[in-house]
Design a protein around this nucleic acid. Structure first.
Lengths: 254, 254
DNA sequence: ATCCGGCATTGACATATGTCAACGGGCCCG
DNA sequence: CGGGCCCGTTGACATATGTCAATGCCGGAT
């Protein structure tokens, strides 16, 4: 798949080819993908991956750069391969609710209707795989296990969303922060990153918009947790979960 | 309803057979289902419906009767055919978040893992179709359009959940109530029921647990809306949306 | 028709969280 | 090296909503 200078997609492909971390002949970029085990793509193998590779494009985003906006035609779906992306909805007056932070391996863009029901924007430098919706649907036709996997992803997202509703509707600020830190830490661990200290790539404002709080409250609760020795704030947005058990208590059962 | 004492399932089947509202020969209960057009089952027809009918069971619930509890083995999935069912999660200390009210046509029980991630309980007298998970999965194998439909349902649920997160995280009590009444009214209309006045089969406590508020706040905001002439409370839990435009304004954009 | 019990409403008061504002520190850019 | 800017923190104060408690009402059961 080595070709001349073109889109970021091509660039990335070449980079992956050159790396040659896998010894297989005719390696496709998807076959070489080092986060595949985290993604829906893991439902496929060998020649199937080759076919997938033919319909994928690469996207790179700088922090703050939008991926798409609510209401746009939902022509693409994505897979985050690196970095962090936030997904959010806005009220007309600007109030924002972040409905999720996505990391490597997370799937993005399921939309029932023809339009995205939310906006997406990079939090940190991020790379994603982009699939034209129609082509992915054709691939699902050929590879039913892909569709099955997607249904699994959707079900899981649904369970996560319900937990978040519980948090937003019924938890105190301290419980929300504690839950957030724990889940973020677990998520990092799943991706093979540091579980403790855990890195928070997003701002306090983002966290507030995710937890239904203000920046100030997030900050205050952080210092409270710091004061009681439950966490410690470190350089670079890292947070040490010094007393995980206490944090789990505070999280109120989830 | 003359019948001998059997399971509710048999009772219902016979009733439907006797009704013979469709002239087709060998009518299956699913073919005769009068809410099928609202459900996932609408993905199938004719002989396929016959096969579906062979794996379905009927469930009838009284108000307050649980369907299943969070943490139970998720052996079944359901389709609500009449009445109202609430789905909720609890915190250890009893705080409750209702994550949804389900009505005729709504699908229930998608669970990624082996256990239900939430509890379900009848709000009003309700009837449901019950499918053994394994059998339904086998049916999806045979009828891919069923799986596709289910993915559609899941995507839609996801969008609804995100809207609810926006409500819980960022809307005021008045906005929450207004949004709730509007959505309930629209949902009733889709099912062919009265859109205005709209019937609220659930208690104020249920509404509060759904909107992240207390019973008292729900009640207060209701009387406020009544006071400004936006709604009128009628007997039997009916609510007249007297000034829909104003209500939509109050709902804050959704 | 009457009684009872759950549900809704209302009031007085408490408080968690929001709002507004100031300040400090790190970091990039000139 | 200095200046500005974004982000985080902290403080004083405001307020929406929760809490606790009393009362009222409707609807089903006797």
């Amino acid at each position: 798949m080595q070709q001349s200078n073109q889109s970021p997609f091509d660039v990335r492909n070449r980079r992956l080819m050159e790396a040659k971390s896998r010894p297989e002949p005719s390696t496709s970029p998807c076959a070489a993908c080092n986060v595949r085990h985290l993604t829906v793509c893991d439902a496929l193998e060998g020649a199937e991956l080759q076919q997938l590779a033919e319909i994928v494009q690469n996207v790179e985003l700088e922090p703050g750069q939008p991926l798409f906006d609510e209401g746009e035609r939902a022509d693409f779906v994505f897979n985050v391969t690196a970095g962090c992306v936030k997904v959010y909805k806005l009220l007309p007056d600007g109030r924002r609710q972040v409905t999720g932070f996505l990391f490597a391996g997370d799937f993005l863009g399921l939309a029932n209707q023809d339009f995205y029901a939310f906006s997406a924007e990079a939090v940190s430098p991020a790379t994603l795989c982009r699939f034209q919706r129609g082509k992915l649907e054709a691939a699902m036709e050929r590879f039913p296990q892909l569709e099955k996997r997607l249904l699994g992803v959707a079900s899981h997202e649904l369970a996560v969303a319900q937990e978040q509703m519980l948090l937003l509707g019924r938890k105190t600020a301290k419980e929300r922060l504690a839950s957030f830190l724990i889940k973020l830490s677990e998520s990092a661990e799943r991706r093979g990153q540091s579980k403790n200290p855990v890195r928070l790539p997003m701002t306090r404002a983002d966290i507030g918009d995710y937890l239904g709080l203000t920046t100030e409250t997030v900050s205050r609760v952080m210092t409270q947790l710091k004061g009681q020795g439950t966490i410690a704030l470190m350089p670079n947005g890292q947070v040490e979960l010094s007393d995980l058990e206490k944090l789990e208590d505070l999280a109120g059962g989830y």
